[in-house]
């Protein structure tokens, strides 16, 4: 299969997977899901690294490095912020009074 056709096939299949995996999400998780998906498209960092790694010209390299910085902010920041949100959903459901959570057992 030619490269272009293979990529197109992958694209179409990924569309269906994308639709399928979030089809039954509850409104409770809309924010973390949005934020998590946001972090995933930070993988453009890989593209930015490829471009920066093949830059011969100083200007091109400088521009590509800007893309690397932006993509890193997107990816790393996105995953950290999503984790912080989700941390709150996992706390025990017993109901300690505010402030009790920090007290050692």
């Amino acid at each position: 299969m030619s490269g272009g056709m293979a990529l197109l096939t992958i694209f179409v299949l990924a569309v269906f997977v994308g639709f399928e995996v979030v089809s039954k999400v509850s409104t409770t998780l809309h924010t973390p899901l949005m934020s998590g998906a946001n972090a995933i498209h930070g993988v453009i960092l890989v593209g930015a690294i490829i471009v920066a790694g093949h830059a011969d010209d100083t200007y091109v390299l400088a521009l590509a490095l800007v893309a690397v910085v932006l993509a890193t902010v997107n990816m790393v920041g996105g995953f950290v912020v999503t984790d912080r949100m989700l941390e709150m959903f996992r706390r025990p459901r017993a109901r300690p009074a505010p402030g009790d959570a920090e007290r050692p057992a």
Partner: peptide, 21 residues
């Protein structure tokens, strides 16, 4: 553009799930 399957899959996943969301 970069002939990179990972970017293609990840971007498409986000595009599709983002549309549903």
């Amino acid at each position: 553009v970069l002939d990179n399957t990972l970017l293609l899959v990840a971007g498409t996943l986000v595009g599709a799930s983002g549309t549903i969301l």
